[in-house]
């Protein structure tokens, strides 16, 4: 009975974990399809992959993983009833999330200026679909965290009442997980 209960109540709640599972499955399958297509049209895909800026991808990976670390720190602080600390780290989390979006937007602007927009070739169709879908997730994550920050500052959460923060944190880390799969497959593997 205890085991059944804990299966239904993972950290952050079962609903967010079902969402995480569906999301990583969807991206995982899409990335496998991308790999299949890569090998069916190897030269085109390799040529287009070389047009991506690996350094920008690497920088954004650093930013997103660091943002995940900040979010984990928010949870630590709130469990310790250190609300001011939680607020501070939530600011950092949102800030790094915005930095990711800004850098990704900058990368998009470079690609568009080079003429590598959606429809350029199959590689860039995958690139735009996968990364823009992830971009939207990060954007939604920033909005969720901003709402949580607002409520945190109002005093709505504490050491015995932080399920919303935990759920928002799981969503935010899901963006990390997806990027952890996207970055090597899109930018590095050939």
């Amino acid at each position: 009975m205890e085991q059944a209960k804990s299966f239904l109540y993972p950290p952050g709640g079962i609903l967010i974990w079902i969402i995480v599972l569906m999301e990583v499955l969807t991206f995982g399958i899409a990335l496998i399809v991308f790999r299949v297509n890569f090998h069916q049209d190897y030269d085109t895909f390799l040529n287009s992959q070389n047009m991506l800026s690996k350094n920008i991808g690497l920088f954004n990976t650093v930013v997103l993983i660091t943002s995940g670390y900040f979010m984990a720190t928010v949870i630590v602080k709130i469990k310790q009833s250190r609300i001011k600390g939680a607020i501070k780290w939530m600011f950092f989390t949102i800030g790094t999330g915005l930095l990711f979006l800004f850098v990704k937007g900058w990368e998009y602007s470079i690609k568009i200026a080079e003429g590598h927009s959606f429809g350029y070739d199959d590689f860039f169709d995958f690139y735009w679909m996968l990364t823009s879908f992830h971009f939207i997730h990060v954007l939604v994550g920033v909005v969720i965290l901003s709402v949580l920050l607002f409520k945190l500052r109002k005093g709505d959460y504490g050491a015995s009442n932080f399920l919303d923060i935990e759920t928002g944190g799981v969503f935010w880390h899901m963006c990390d997980l997806i990027w952890i799969l996207l970055f090597p497959v899109l930018y590095l593997l050939h």
Binding site: Q3, G12, I65, I75, G169, D176, L177, I180
Partner: peptide, 17 residues
């Protein structure tokens, strides 16, 4: 390894069923 590190530690999957 990176995926599981984030899931288990940051997402607290280690505390799940």
């Amino acid at each position: 390894i990176k995926f599981l590190g984030i899931a288990f530690q940051y997402m607290e999957l280690k505390d799940a069923h």
